[in-house]
Simulated scan of single mutants.
Amino acid sequence: MTTTEPTPAVQKSSEVLLSVDGLVKHFPIRKGVLQRQVGAVQAVDGLTFDVTQGETLSLVGESGCGKTTTGRLLTRLLEPTAGTIVFEGRDISHLREGQMRPLRRDVQMIFQDPYGSLNPRHTVGKIVGAPFRLQNVKTEHGVKRAVQELLELVGLSPEHYNRYPHEFSGGQRQRIGIARTLALRPKLIVADEPVSALDVSIQAQVVNLLEDLQEEFDLTYVMIAHDLSVVRHVSDRVAVMYLGKIVELADRVDLYENPMHPYTTALLSAVPVPDTKRKGKQERIRLQGDVPSPINPPPACRFHTRCWKAQDICKTVEPPLIQLAPGHQTACHFPENATPEQEATATAAAKA
């Protein structure tokens, strides 16, 4: 990945493509012969955000914070427990499988594992051509020609049409998965850690490919990632998740240069600095303890058990996700890098 400073993010459109309000997903825990519910895993607990046409919104956070579950909810691979998902003005939260089928053309997903997401028994031609057959889409020059053009688009050879997944490297397999995702020209792509399983030398190639495709086809991405260096390179906005909730949502440049939530500050302090002159000046914040269980999360602010700024109010009053600066939302009673006016806004929100 290039080490040059990324250019400031630009809002690409004001048109909201995807709107999420109060999204919840709880997985029931059942025991006994009668399989009675005795609890629930609160994987996602009240997410609210919008995604505008043509932008890249990244979801970041520690493993187990609910990023992948959120991605599967957005693509309706999982049924939400509560909340709404509105795509192009239509509520798709609880559509049946038959009703979702036409929308699959517009909402697609890139999976994390380039090995497990491809059927080893099928050729590349059959894998990439599956969306055309499943959606009964007719192409001008036939499915084979369309698949070969897709393979060229993602940097592979048309001659790979009759080969099997085991004959390719990890990066090439991910390109095959991307070609399959692009087959029906979707409007929204949820990319679940698309480069985390790849070698570092290949990651930059795939990231650059995704950016080129976004520009060419006016794609909108919801990127799920844990590598904050990659996130800084590709994102327009970043949402930081902790234990099923969004704790900070801001423009990429603003978030990296002026983080307000203590958890975000701790995450950014762990990002490796390639500049040896600055490396020694970076203060590493080490969080104490493990992430609490989503089965029984802490009350009020879920981060208070690991936060160095926590006070009594953090244990009794849940901080709302409010805007403390233009386009910068934070859920914290005592935000970092905040002006006196912003601190007063956070205090007033807690009392409301």
Rank of each mutant, 00 (worst) to 15 (best):
R232W: 00
R145L: 01
V147M: 04
E216Q: 15
S229F: 00
M260P: 00
V273L: 07
L255M: 05
R252Q: 07
A239H: 08
V253R: 15
A266W: 01
V206K: 11
V247I: 12
L151A: 03
V222Y: 02
V207Y: 09
V190Q: 08
Q172I: 08
V240T: 09
A266L: 03
R252W: 00
I189N: 05
S269N: 10
L268Y: 04
L210H: 04
V154R: 11
Q172F: 12
M260C: 11
Y256M: 10
P194S: 07
V230F: 03
A204D: 11
V273M: 13
D236V: 02
L243E: 13
L268R: 05
N208W: 03
Q174L: 04
V238D: 02
D192T: 07
P194F: 03
K144F: 01
Y164A: 11
A191V: 08
T220G: 02
V247D: 09
Q174P: 10
G177Q: 02
L213V: 12
D212L: 09
E215A: 12
P165D: 15
V190S: 09
L213K: 06
P158L: 08
V253G: 03
L209P: 09
V195C: 12
S235N: 08
D192A: 09
L198Q: 11
L268T: 08
Y164M: 12
R252N: 14
D236K: 04
E248L: 04
Y164C: 14
Q174N: 05
R232S: 01
K187T: 01
L182Y: 04
Q148R: 15
M223P: 00
V207D: 06
G244F: 14
V207Q: 10
P262Q: 04
L228K: 01
S229V: 00
E216A: 15
L219K: 05
L267H: 06
G244L: 11
L150K: 03
V154H: 06
A179T: 06
H160S: 13
V273Y: 00
L249C: 01
V206Q: 10
Q174G: 11
L228I: 02
D251N: 15
G170S: 14
L156F: 06
F217N: 01
A266G: 07
S269R: 08
V240D: 09
D199V: 12
S201M: 08
E216K: 15
A179E: 05
Y164I: 13
D218V: 00
V247L: 04
